[in-house]
Amino acid sequence: MPMYDYLDELESRTIYILREAYNRVKPLGMLWSIGKDSTALLWMIRKAFYGRVPFPMIQLDTEMELPEVYEFRDQLVKDWGFELKVELCPPEEEMDQTLPPATRSATRKTEGLRNLLLRDQYRGMILGIRRDEQSMRAKERIFSPRTLDGKWDFKDQPAELWDQYKTDFPQGTHVRIHPILHWTELDIWRYTLREKIPYVPLYLSQNGKRYRSLGEKNITFPIDSNASTLEEIIAELEVTRQPERAGRAMDHDSEDSFERLRAGGYM
């Protein structure tokens, strides 16, 4: 099996960011979507803190994930023994009805997160987003401040250089922390393979279809693929020209649908 040594550097950087976050920002939590990215990140949290997970994992649950996702979740909590908090998101009827349908559905998570932040007063929330997923995410900072209701002022982001992160904030703001912003989809799969990190089996092909990106069942669709092992997924991604989030309906409702989602506080 290839060792992919270049991943050591990416991992080292992520561990550095995690330790900064844990030292500088309290109380801290992480949104675990149960997908490949945040599960790889959870693995790196265990590395950073010597086998421990020193802050809660939070799932924003719309009760619309695929059954395999819930199964995987419960098994991993059991195997790794960490604290999981499940935050139920408000129903779609309560969302802004002027939004396009898939975007409206995705907004439920934004609202769930807002409720959580207001109630539990987290100062920092770790997220497993990556720059190469989506062009809006490419413009993110590693430590990205938000107002308490989650708004992202993307036109005036703080300067961020030489691993000096903005970690002090006035009351009323929280910070989103993005420790794997610099990883790509391929990096994550190579890392998952190398480290033998568990993943939801839906990523593997069955009957010519597989999920490349996991989301709620009503707004996420599998892609055509015969990749039924991690090695095959990696080989597929090394040549594909399909964007990763092609199967995520909310990105494609309108030109700026994802921008509106993110400015409003979406992950």
Binding site: P158, A159, E160, L161, W162, Q164, K166, D168
Partner: peptide
């Protein structure tokens, strides 16, 4: 990197 209260102001 220089900070003034919460903000990065120079470097």
């Amino acid at each position: 990197v220089l900070f003034d209260k919460y903000d990065v102001v120079g470097g």
